[in-house]
Design a protein around this nucleic acid. Structure first.
Lengths: 214, 214
DNA sequence: AATCTTTTTCGTACACGTACGATGCAGTGT
DNA sequence: ACACTGCATCGTACGTGTACGAAAAAGATT
C-alpha cells in the first residue's frame, strides 16, 4: 500500500492495466524473466497482489500483454529498415527479429518461449495475425515479394515458415549459448539465406491445405 | 576396503535414484504432469520432501531424467522404423522427433526450451550430441545421406540446421497452440520436406566457416 | 436520504519448489 | 573404547501463483 487509496480510486481501468504492463516490462528488463512475479508487480504499482487479478486472468495473461507490446516495438523497428529489393526487405525483417531476440533474450524468452495455452478472452486467431503488427509487416513484405514475382505461394504460409525458422534459430542460440553454432550472426544469416533460397525455389501452398504425398 | 564401501554407497545411491525416477514416472502416468510434485514423490518412496534433493539437484533434474528415458525409447522407435531411402530415413527422424515433442511438451520444454547454463552435473554439449540417442541417430543418418551422395556438405552443420528447423516448428507449435498453423502433423511434414529440399539443393559448409557476402 | 445491487479491491490460506542449517548415524583413526 | 569426521536425512521457513470469500466502494433504485 504505497499509494493513497484516493489516488488509486481515480485511476481508470485501462490506464491501470497498461501501467501494470509497463511495470511488468520494466521488471523483466531489470531483473529478467524470473524477476516478474505477481507480488513484485503489485508492489510496483501500489496494489495488493490479488488486485492484479482484476486486470489479468492469470500470469499468462500478463505475458500475453507483454508479447503484444513487444510485437509493436518490433514492428516499429522493422519498418525503420526498408530495402529496395523485396527479398532483401524480407531478410531485413528476419535480421531485425534476430537482433531483437539475441539482444533481449529475457524479453524474448518471456514472450516467445513460455507457454500460452489459452488465448485471453476475446482474442482469436485473426487477432493473432491481424492484431500483431510485426507479423503484419512480415506478411506485407512477403506479399510484396509475391507481387514482384520473387516468391510464389500463399503469403501467410510463407510468413509463418519464415517465423518458424527464425524462431528456431534464435531460441536455440539463446537456450544453448555454448553449443558450437559458430558465430551467432553468421548462423542467423545462414538460416535466413537458406530459407529464402528454398522459398524462392518453390510454390508454397496455404497452411490449411494439407497436401499428401511421400 | 574403503573402496568397496564407497562403491556400495554409490550403488545404493544409484538404486534409490532410479527408484525415485520410476516413482516419478508412475506419478506422471497416474496423475499427469501436474501431479508430479516433490512432496508427492517423496511421500511415495517414504522420504521427507527435502531428501529428494540428495539425489536430484532440482525438479528439472528429475524431469531431465524422465526425458532421457523418453529419448532412449524414441531412438529405439526410430531405429525400428528404418527406410530404404536415406532421405526418407532422415525425414523419419524428424517426424518421430516432432511426435515426441508434441506428445511430451513438458519434457520437451524442460530439455530444449529452458536455459542450459546449468546442465545436470556431468552433462556437456558433447553429451548433447553423443549422449542424446535421438541426436546421435540424426547425425548418423545425415552422414548416411552424405555418403550416399544425396546430401552435400558438413554432416554436423546439416544436422544442426535440421535440428534448428525441427525445434522451431515444435517449440512454436507448443508455445502458440492457438496460432493457425493448420494441422500440426501437416505443418511438421511441410517444414521437414521444405528443409530437406533446400538441403539437397546446396552444399552446406561447416558451421565454423562464416562466409561473408551481401 | 436510504437501501439494495454490482463492481473493485484485497486479506487469508493452500500447495508448491527449495535454501538453510540442524540432527543423527555410519565409518575411520587413535 | 572413544572421539572425530563426513554424509544422508529432514524440520523449518521463505517466496511463489492463485482460489476463495470478505470488505469496501461505486452505482442504481426507491
Amino acid at each position: 500500500m504505497a499509494l493513497s487509496v484516493q489516488k488509486r480510486r481515480e485511476k481508470q481501468k485501462a490506464e491501470l492495466r497498461s501501467e501494470l504492463v509497463a511495470a511488468a516490462h520494466k521488471l523483466v528488463q531489470e531483473e529478467g524473466y524470473e524477476g516478474l512475479t505477481i507480488r513484485k508487480l503489485a508492489k510496483r504499482v501500489g496494489y495488493a497482489p490479488m488486485s492484479v487479478y482484476s486486470y489479468f486472468a492469470d500470469k499468462q495473461d500478463i505475458l500475453f500483454a507483454l508479447a503484444e507490446d513487444a510485437f509493436e516495438t518490433l514492428a516499429r523497428r522493422i519498418e525503420e529498415h526498408p530495402a529496395d529489393d523485396p527479398i532483401e526487405a524480407l531478410k531485413a525483417v528476419m535480421t531485425e527479429y534476430a537482433a531483437f531476440g539475441l539482444g533481449n533474450p529475457n524479453e524474448y524468452r518471456t514472450v516467445f518461449m513460455t507457454e500460452k495455452t489459452k488465448l485471453p478472452e476475446g482474442r482469436s486467431y485473426a487477432d493473432m495475425e491481424e492484431g500483431n503488427p510485426a507479423m503484419k509487416v512480415l506478411i506485407k513484405r512477403v506479399e510484396a515479394c509475391v507481387a514482384a514475382g520473387r516468391l510464389k505461394g500463399d503469403p501467410r504460409a510463407i510468413a509463418t515458415m519464415l517465423w518458424t525458422v527464425g524462431h528456431g534459430t534464435i531460441s536455440l542460440l539463446i537456450t544453448f549459448p555454448f553449443y558450437p553454432f559458430g558465430d551467432a550472426q553468421a548462423y542467423v544469416k545462414r538460416m535466413c539465406d537458406f530459407t529464402l533460397a528454398g522459398l524462392q525455389a518453390q510454390d508454397i501452398p496455404p497452411l490449411t491445405a494439407t497436401p499428401v504425398n511421400c
